[in-house]
Amino acid sequence: MSSSENTTPATDVPVAKSDAQWRQELTPEEYRVLRQAGTERPYTGEYWDTHTEGVYQCRACGSRLFTSREKFDSHCGWPSFWAPLAEGTVRYLHDRTLGMERIEVRCAKCDSHLGHVFEGEGYDTPTDQRYCINSISLRLVETDAD
């Protein structure tokens, strides 16, 4: 089994870095989205329409979060997944910003903002959930061709 096929989360040890360390390691836009819960503009991110097979990692810490098997075309302008790679890879927070009730999705390992999850929108997926994730929060590691 190649490492990209392993579906267990990365180590459970949380990543603890200072704000200064995050600012040094991330670009200003990565920092704005990952550490300040910003959002990239729709249809501008690297992965919104990608169909490449692989594993999507957290751009901040490298934790494996989603795979291309759960990715689907929602036509919303951001990468959409119907489930995370495994239980415990992401965590959820109630988000009441901008006058809306939403569920924020964060990396369980480094607490970086990824996007939001929506339910009951009628997509023909196994979970009827749409994990709407910022491309800039992710890094795609392509599956090895055997």
Rank of each mutant, 00 (worst) to 15 (best):
E121W: 02
D19Q: 08
D73P: 15
Q24I: 03
P126V: 09
N134R: 07
E87K: 12
I103L: 07
G115V: 04
I133Y: 04
S137H: 00
L26E: 08
T52M: 15
Q24H: 12
G115P: 01
E142Y: 08
E119M: 06
G88E: 07
R130E: 03
V33R: 02
E142K: 15
V141P: 10
V13F: 14
Y47K: 04
A108G: 09
T67P: 05
F118K: 02
L140N: 07
E5N: 13
P28K: 06
Y43R: 15
D95N: 03
D111Q: 11
G120I: 08
V141F: 10
G88K: 05
F81C: 05
E46V: 00
R96V: 06
E46I: 01
H75R: 14
D19N: 08
T127E: 10
E5P: 06
E5F: 06
P9V: 08
L138P: 03
D73E: 11
A37I: 04
I136N: 03
I103N: 05
T11K: 09
V33P: 03
S135M: 01
L98D: 10
N6T: 15
V13W: 07
F72K: 10
K17M: 06
R106A: 01
L65H: 11
V105A: 00
E101A: 11
T127S: 09
E87I: 15
T50V: 14
L34G: 01
P14Q: 13
E121C: 01
W48E: 00
T50K: 14
G38T: 01
I136Y: 06
E25W: 10
H113S: 04
C132E: 05
G77S: 14
A145L: 12
W82G: 09
G62F: 10
K17H: 09
V141G: 07
Q36H: 05
H116D: 05
R35E: 00
D12F: 12
W48C: 02
A83G: 09
D124I: 12
G45D: 00
P28M: 13
V90Q: 02
Q129P: 14
H116P: 02
P126W: 05
R96E: 08
P42A: 09
E5A: 13
P9C: 10
S68H: 12
T52Y: 11
C76Q: 07
V141C: 11
E25D: 13
A108M: 15
D146H: 14
G115C: 02
R130G: 01
S68D: 12
Y47D: 00
E30Y: 07
E30C: 08
H75T: 15
W22G: 03
V33A: 03
H113Q: 07
D128L: 13
T52C: 14
S74T: 08
G120T: 11
H94L: 13
G54Q: 12
L93C: 02
H75D: 12
S68G: 10
A83K: 14
E104D: 07
C132F: 08
A86C: 07
S137Q: 04
Q24N: 12
T97W: 02
E87Q: 14
D128Q: 09
K17S: 06
E5L: 09
A10T: 15
Y123W: 13
L93I: 01
S80P: 12
E46S: 10
Q24L: 12
D111W: 03
H113R: 03
N134D: 01
Q24R: 10
P14V: 01
R32H: 04
D124E: 14
Y31W: 15
V15L: 08
T39Y: 01
D19G: 04
D12N: 15
T27K: 04
P42L: 10
S80I: 07
